[in-house]
Design a protein around this nucleic acid. Structure first.
Length: 614
DNA sequence: GAGCACTGC
């Protein structure tokens, strides 16, 4: 399977799973010194490979993820790790000199880290002719992947002739698995898609042979409505709905209810799962046959992904509640490939730390737009991470690159050292790094809001996090305390983990872990030092809580989940924006406008802040 | 008065 064909190292195999490929490779290359897999489900794969090789996990075969290093420096020859971990390792060892073979699995999934990694590996292979690269990718991507690495070879032949021949990487293309899925479209656009979904379910149930149904709707509201309509139909003992089991599925649903979806369908029954796009990727039902309703607008890629949920065990059908013309002409092919600015900012700083100075000339498998790149460089410049020559500043730039967080958070941590509030800021940094510390859930907003009020701080959400953290520690990290206070226990566990990691890094950087006790002003200043670019001012009277960003005059509002919602202090900075019908600021803290030119003299000149500074 | 879901250091 690995032998080079005449066209080079482009091989094809039609394996049912990626795993057997990896396993055969292990057998084939057992004699090599050390080599690498990069895969998201790597713990599971690592333990299977260890089992296959008859060795103990953590010895000859090991893995490394963010909070776990299950390897043994003396013994490990096969190591599984995430792309992020490998990028971190490259900061100490840019040529990855310890390793002889690197396999990048699922390269087509193409997270931005994988893209950087591929770009760096392409560079490394010019300096490391002995390094074997194996890239596994979906078939459609294999050719472009091969040419990405081939163009590097041409470059090498034209330029550096003294480096000796280097092998092109083996590109494994893994065929899509599964059975045929028959696609149906509606002939005319439907006026009410929830109603249309319900009718289609009943029609399928009436006319199609056994097999479960999976329906994608946009949100919890529509799911509730559809479940209600179908359940009413079932309860009225209508002939059309006899034997139908109706189950909702969304992330906020309690675990026990989610498990129902995965339980086997009783004989003679048909399960219908009404889901958000949680089921698009994470759901693989171990049941006979899944039929699939999709509601627009999503991307073509997403639509194919959804259709692929059917036909995994035997042929399936997919009913799209939009017209074929709409699919062909209106739907975008790839969704939103736009790289988030903050992500790109992190990447740029990592490349800089790896010594790649010419960022704009870096060869990516798919380049981000130069506008996005320039915006990222601007952010880093304003943070004082890059200097006028776009080089990492010392020490701030190098320190920010050391911290595995969004550079704005890293800058906030560094500022907290001078301001004497690192203890508090590390907690805030950890809390900002996870989705939410509160339990989500409908039908208990009132209790949740009341619970939040018990911790709410006048300064805003960041200080509120501190209050929750304090309470959690005082309770002895009790999960019962979490339940009573509508705090997500699992999220708090993560906060503790991340905080411990940040503490280790902070100590390595020589940051003094001092507490500011009750002085919230220094704490707010530290937040401002990182997030000054997100400063907003409340519009004067009668604008119903409308703020404008200081820099862009963009209209924004405080998100209803914030403790400052309806409080509307005059000046705030936010952590992130979420855009729905409006632009909402999430995690908001009050500031004094005079701190802005202090924190970022290049970014804010005094006069920009206008006459309302007092 | 908002709410699709991951992944990663």
């Amino acid at each position: 399977m690995l032998a080079p064909n005449r066209e080079g190292w482009l091989c094809r195999c039609s394996c049912k799973l990626v795993f057997p490929v990896s396993c055969s490779l292990v057998k084939l290359l057992e004699e090599t010194r050390q080599w690498w897999f990069i895969n998201s489900k790597l713990q599971a794969v690592a333990s299977r490979v260890a089992e296959e090789m008859g060795v103990k996990l953590g010895e000859e075969v090991g893995y490394t993820i963010r909070f776990e290093d299950v390897t043994n420096t003396d013994k490990t020859v096969v190591k599984f790790l995430t792309d992020g971990v490998l990028l971190r390792e490259m900061m100490d060892d840019p040529l990855l000199s310890k390793y002889s073979v690197i396999m990048v699995d699922e390269a087509h999934e193409r997270s931005i880290s994988t893209d950087i990694l591929l770009g760096l590996l392409r560079k490394i292979q010019r300096r490391r002719p002995d390094l074997r690269l194996i890239i596994s990718s979906a078939t459609i991507e294999a050719k472009s992947m091969a040419s990405f690495f081939r163009s590097s070879k041409r470059h090498q032949e034209a330029g550096a002739t003294d480096l000796g021949p280097s092998k092109e990487p083996a590109i494994l293309s893994v065929e899509g698995r599964g059975f045929n899925v028959e696609i149906h479209y509606v002939e005319e656009p439907v006026p009410d898609y929830v109603q249309a979904a319900v009718s289609t379910v009943l029609l399928i149930h009436d006319q199609e042979p056994a097999g479960d149904i999976l329906v994608f709707l946009t949100g919890q509201d529509d799911i509730d409505a559809a479940v209600r309509l179908l359940t009413e139909e079932v309860q009225s003992h209508g002939k059309k709905s006899h034997g139908l089991i109706v189950l909702p599925l969304f992330s906020g649903l309690p675990r026990a209810d989610q498990d129902l979806v995965f339980s086997p369908t009783p004989r003679g029954k048909r399960k219908v799962v009404i889901s958000t796009n949680i089921a698009e990727t994470s759901l693989t039902m171990e049941i006979s046959d899944i039929e699939n309703l999709v509601v627009a607008p999503i991307s073509k890629a997403s639509a194919r992904q959804r259709a692929g949920r059917a036909g995994r065990v035997r042929p399936g059908k997919c009913y799209r509640l939009y017209t074929e013309e709409y699919f062909v002409k209106q739907m975008s092919s790839e969704g939103i490939p736009e790289i988030q600015r903050s992500k790109l900012v992190s990447c740029v700083i990592q490349l800089k730390a790896l010594g790649i100075d010419n960022i704009l000339g870096f060869k990516w498998p798919a380049s981000p737009s130069s506008e996005a790149m320039i915006r990222a460089l601007e952010v880093l410049y304003s943070l004082g991470v890059l200097d006028d020559d776009a080089k990492l500043t010392s020490p701030v730039g190098f320190q920010v690159a050391e911290i595995p967080l969004d550079p704005m958070i890293s800058k906030m941590i560094l500022a907290s050292d001078q301001l004497g509030c690192a203890e508090e800021i590390l907690t805030i940094a950890a809390a900002l790094s996870i989705q939410s510390i509160w339990v989500s859930g409908r039908g208990m907003q009132k209790e949740l809001d009341e619970a939040k009020l018990r911790f709410a701080a006048a300064e805003g959400d960041h200080v509120t996090f501190l209050n929750v953290y304090k309470g959690f520690l005082q309770s002895g990290k009790s999960s019962d305390w979490c339940r009573r206070n509508f705090v997500n226990a699992h999220a708090m566990k993560k906060v503790i983990e991340i905080r411990a990691q940040l503490k280790r890094i902070a100590q390595r950087l020589g940051i003094v872990l001092k507490s500011c006790e009750s002085d919230m002003t220094v704490l707010r200043k530290a937040v401002t030092a990182g997030f000054f670019a997100n400063a907003c001012r409340l519009e004067a009277y009668g604008h119903n809580g409308m703020y404008k960003t200081v820099r862009g005059s963009q209209e924004v509002y405080i998100h209803p989940s914030s403790v400052l919602f309806r409080v509307n202090p005059k000046w705030v900075v936010y952590h992130s924006l979420v855009s729905t019908d409006r632009q909402y600021m999430q995690n908001v803290i009050t500031i004094e406008p005079s701190w802005l030119p202090e924190a970022a003299p290049h970014f804010y000149q005094q006069r920009q802040l206008g006459p309302s500074i007092h």
